[in-house]
């Protein structure tokens, strides 16, 4: 998935606040998320749509309710884009070292 929507979604303090609220209490409805927050219901719905488009929030219908869940996979994927670049050579070096020490040879 293109990562631009993720960065755009995270660039807004209100949307980060919504993610924090889902992190504290996962699976909230729109109504629950609007409680105690200084945003209109419309604004919260719009931010949730942007977060969902970036795959940072997933939602599910449970009976008549639509519940929202923070999706940590999207954040993990972003991290790995760079983590893997730093870690892969080291992991390969370790694998080579292990092979040498254990005397495994590939012809």
């Amino acid at each position: 998935m293109d990562s631009d929507p993720v960065f755009r979604a995270l660039a807004d303090a209100s949307r980060r606040q919504l993610l924090d609220r889902l992190h504290e209490h996962n699976g909230q409805t729109l109504g629950e998320l609007c409680r105690g927050i200084e945003m209109t219901r419309q604004a919260v719905a719009k931010h949730l749509a942007i977060l969902a488009a970036a795959n940072l929030v997933a939602w599910q219908r449970q009976g008549r309710e639509k519940r929202h869940f923070i999706n940590p996979v999207a954040i993990r994927e972003i991290a790995e884009r760079w983590v893997s670049k730093f870690e892969q050579p080291r992991l390969h070096a370790l694998a080579a070292l292990k092979q040498n020490l254990e005397g495994e040879h590939h012809d």
Partner: peptide
């Protein structure tokens, strides 16, 4: 990390 109906998590990835 709970919802009103117990505890659950939803993970989504596009491959």
């Amino acid at each position: 990390m709970t919802d009103a109906n117990g505890s659950s998590f939803v993970y989504v990835t596009y491959i």
